[in-house]
């Protein structure tokens, strides 16, 4: 599974990242599941889920949220409804309007790839909620929290805050495709995921994690990360 894929709704992602194109590429890459994680929005998740069903790819409802410290966290939810509640909470803590000339287009699209609108909020901004606040809110909605690309300097929990705060109840940490080894990250005692953080179609599945489970679903993933049974993370 590749649990960090952007769509054309993220201003920094390629406009070719439409819902059907993502689903087709994920299927071609042999992925059983992906998570759609656009910056501070879940607007394209339902469309990718519909497209995913046509290709037999499970699509988890996610968002890459930016904390007040400018730390990126992946919030993964059981369904688009819980994600919608979280998005509403986050939107109330963000300001600014996107200027596509500087940041890129924020395209809402349907399951056939047709544009349905443009998101006007500044999705590349940060909300004014701390990482601790966000973790509580995500868990309150039954979601999972993964610290994004902790091996990178920019916008990562370790880059911004120096180390993983021990009291922070993360469910996992994510390594970017650039990280050669997970050795130095094992000391945090958290499950380690690898994902593509794809901003272009060809990147989808380029880095991924492997789950041994009956089915590649949110429930099995949650069981694997929380150690409560169901699935288990295994070496790929």
């Amino acid at each position: 599974m590749d649990l960090h894929v952007h769509t054309c709704l993220s201003p920094c992602a390629d406009n070719s990242m439409t819902p059907p194109a993502i689903a087709a590429r994920a299927a071609a890459a042999g992925l059983a599941a992906i998570a759609v994680c656009d910056h501070n929005t879940g607007g394209n998740v339902p469309a990718v889920q519909t497209a995913g069903r046509r290709h037999g790819v499970e699509v988890l409802a996610g968002m890459e949220v930016t904390s007040a410290e400018e730390v990126h966290l992946l919030a993964l939810f059981a369904d688009a409804c819980a994600l919608g509640s979280f998005e509403s909470e986050v939107a109330g803590h963000m300001t600014g309007t996107n200027d596509p000339r500087y940041f890129g287009d924020q395209i809402l699209a349907d399951e056939n790839g047709e544009p349905t609108g443009l998101e006007e909020r500044l999705l590349l901004g940060a909300c004014d909620l701390s990482v601790g606040d966000l973790v509580e809110r995500i868990h309150g909605l039954g979601g999972l929290v993964v610290a994004s690309h902790v091996d990178k300097e920019a916008f990562s929990l370790i880059g911004q805050l120096g180390f993983v705060p021990p009291e922070l109840a993360l469910d996992a940490i994510e390594l970017s495709p650039h990280s050669p080894s997970d050795m130095e990250f094992r000391r945090y005692g958290l499950p380690i995921l690898r994902s593509s953080d794809a901003h272009f179609l060809e990147d989808i599945g380029g880095s991924h994690s492997c789950l041994r489970a009956e089915r590649a679903t949110f429930v099995e993933l949650a069981g694997a990360l929380r150690g409560t049974g169901g699935g288990a993370l295994v070496d790929c």
């Binding site: 410290e69 701390s130 990482v131 300097e153 370790i158 880059g159 911004q160 805050l161 120096g162 180390f163 705060p165």
Partner: peptide, 21 residues
């Protein structure tokens, strides 16, 4: 960036930042 401070600040330095975490 706290990782940058860990790498480059030295003992006795005064650190100017906007991070309140």
């Amino acid at each position: 960036l706290m990782s940058d401070v860990i790498a480059h600040a030295e003992e006795g330095y005064l650190w100017v930042t906007l991070q309140t975490h």
